[in-house]
């Protein structure tokens, strides 16, 4: 009976686990990929995962503040994507490549 109630009753924990899975996929993208733009996509994936948990808590605690926070997070994520892509364009103009294995000037 445990397994069927897990499948048929969607609660807060389902959304939170889904959010955790998406967050970890974003982390894996940032860690594993070498293309700067794909790394930025991983950051966006992490921000979206956090948004899901904000909205889920907002629904299950019946408060609107979570949606407000998601609004702010979205705006700042859009700004961050714009700046990151501008940095990518700037890097591409210098190195003709957006693969991070060429950016080793900061290596000690």
């Amino acid at each position: 009976m445990q397994s069927t109630s897990f499948l048929t009753e969607i609660g807060l924990s389902h959304y939170l686990v889904l959010s955790a899975l998406l967050f970890v996929m974003g982390v894996a993208t940032v860690l594993l990929r070498r293309n700067l733009i794909v790394i930025l996509m991983g950051v966006e994936l992490m921000l979206n995962a956090v948004n899901i948990s904000f909205i889920a808590f907002s629904k299950y605690n019946d408060r609107v503040e979570g949606q407000l926070m998601v609004f702010f997070v979205m705006t700042i994520a859009a700004a961050e994507a714009a700046v990151g892509l501008a940095i990518a364009v700037s890097i591409f103009k210098r190195f003709k490549e957006v693969n991070i294995r060429f950016f080793e000037h900061l290596k000690g």
């Binding site: 948004n51 998601v70 609004f71 994520a77 859009a78 994507a81």
Partner: peptide, 27 residues
């Protein structure tokens, strides 16, 4: 669509417009 299932309709619209529309087109 998950936001719609959670009852956050406005945020779902903003998500579609800002992320799927603007940010992904920029990428």
């Amino acid at each position: 669509a998950l936001f719609v299932t959670l009852g956050a309709y406005f945020i779902a619209g903003v998500q579609l417009i800002v992320y799927a529309g603007a940010v992904l087109v920029l990428f």
